[in-house]
Amino acid sequence: MATALVTGASAGIGKTFATQLAQRGHDLVLVARTESRLQELKEQLEERYSIAAEVLAADLSDRLDIQLVADRLADAERPVDLLVNNAGFGLKKPFLRNEIRAEEEMLTVLVRAVTVLSHAAALAMRARRRGAIINVSSVAGFMASGTYSAAKSYVTVFSEGLSSELRGTGVTVTALCPGFTRTEFHARAGIKGHGIPDFMWLQADSLVKECLDDVDRGKVVSIPGAQYKVAATALRVLPRPVVRMGRLSRKHRPQ
């Protein structure tokens, strides 16, 4: 039975990944900061889907905790077949109004943790010649919208580069680039989504299913939803001055 490790598994897209992977018969390693929520999810998924779930409480803004998760991914005796780098971080204020410590903490979660965990997983998977990595990015990465947008741009390009490096090894890498998705992320960050048309909102269940289908097909960049496929294509071909002029405010930022 395959094993998947999901970061940010206690809520939102991460919880949906954990649920759908359990439905597919995967054992799980559930990673998030709040151990009690992970334990509750573990019990629910084990009872409902007859899989085995492991709880690994870790704060991915902490370097020691990142290494703890990396060590679990590198454990040859307990192989992880699928890594989902999903842990999120949001800041409500623009860059110059934030404390630099908060900005650094966000970049640790969104950039450093993704890099370190992908490195550990890719080495272990390449040695076994099988496995998959999903790095949750965002269509915000195609925009010019502050450090969050810059971090997600890194995740997408990094994933594309790693995918090329692993070509022919049996290991795939997929960058998931969702748009606005109805999850706990916006509620916990104080983002209410006023002014966003209903048709622009994705549902986490369909988003995750489409991503997992794309992973099965070996797709490198997964953009769920027809509306966001069109938007991402437009953002890639528009002149950069136009993209900069049309950037979203932080309170209306996808994912």
Score class of each variant (00 low, 15 high):
Ala2His: 10
Leu5Met: 12
Val6Thr: 06
Ser10Val: 00
Gly12Ala: 12
Gly12Thr: 01
Gly14Arg: 03
Phe17Trp: 04
Ala22Cys: 03
Gln23Glu: 14
Arg24Val: 04
His26Arg: 09
His26Gly: 01
Leu30Gln: 03
Arg33Tyr: 11
Arg33Lys: 11
Arg37Thr: 10
Arg37Gly: 05
Gln39Phe: 10
Glu40Thr: 15
Glu40Pro: 01
Gln44Ala: 12
Glu46Thr: 07
Ile51Tyr: 10
Ala52Tyr: 11
Ala53Leu: 09
Val55Thr: 05
Leu56Phe: 13
Leu56Met: 13
Ala57Gly: 06
Leu60Pro: 00
Ser61Asn: 06
Asp62Phe: 06
Asp65Thr: 02
Asp65Trp: 04
Val69Pro: 00
Ala70Phe: 05
Arg72Ala: 15
Leu73Met: 10
Ala76Asp: 12
Pro79Trp: 05
Val80Phe: 03
Leu82Cys: 05
Gly88Phe: 01
Phe89Met: 06
Leu91Pro: 01
Leu91Ile: 02
Lys93Ser: 09
Phe95Gln: 07
Arg97Phe: 09
Glu99Phe: 04
Arg101Leu: 06
Met106Val: 01
Thr108Ala: 08
Val109Asn: 06
Val109Tyr: 02
Arg112Lys: 10
Val114His: 09
Thr115Gln: 08
Thr115Asp: 08
Leu117Val: 03
Ser118Thr: 05
Arg126Gln: 13
Arg128Pro: 01
Arg129Phe: 04
Ala132Gly: 04
Asn135Tyr: 01
Val139Gly: 10
Val139Tyr: 07
Phe142Val: 03
Phe142Glu: 06
Met143Trp: 11
Ser145Arg: 03
Ala150Asp: 10
Thr156Asn: 05
Val157Arg: 12
Phe158Gly: 02
Ser163Thr: 09
Thr169Pro: 00
Gly170Met: 11
Thr172Gly: 14
Val173Asp: 07
Thr174Ser: 09
Gly179Ile: 00
Phe180Ala: 01
Thr181Arg: 12
Glu184Ser: 13
Phe185Cys: 02
His186Lys: 14
Lys192Ala: 15
Gly193Gln: 12
Pro197Cys: 15
Trp201Met: 03
Leu202Ser: 15
Leu202Arg: 04
Gln203Asn: 15
Ala204Val: 00
Lys219Trp: 06
Lys219Ile: 13
Ser222Gly: 04
Gly225Asp: 05
Ala226Pro: 03
Tyr228Pro: 00
Lys229Met: 07
Ala232Met: 05
Leu235Tyr: 11
Leu235Gln: 11
Arg236Thr: 08
Arg244Phe: 02
Met245Gln: 14
Gly246Glu: 13
Gly246Ser: 14
Leu248Glu: 15
Ser249Thr: 14
Ser249Asn: 13
His252Thr: 15
Arg253Glu: 15
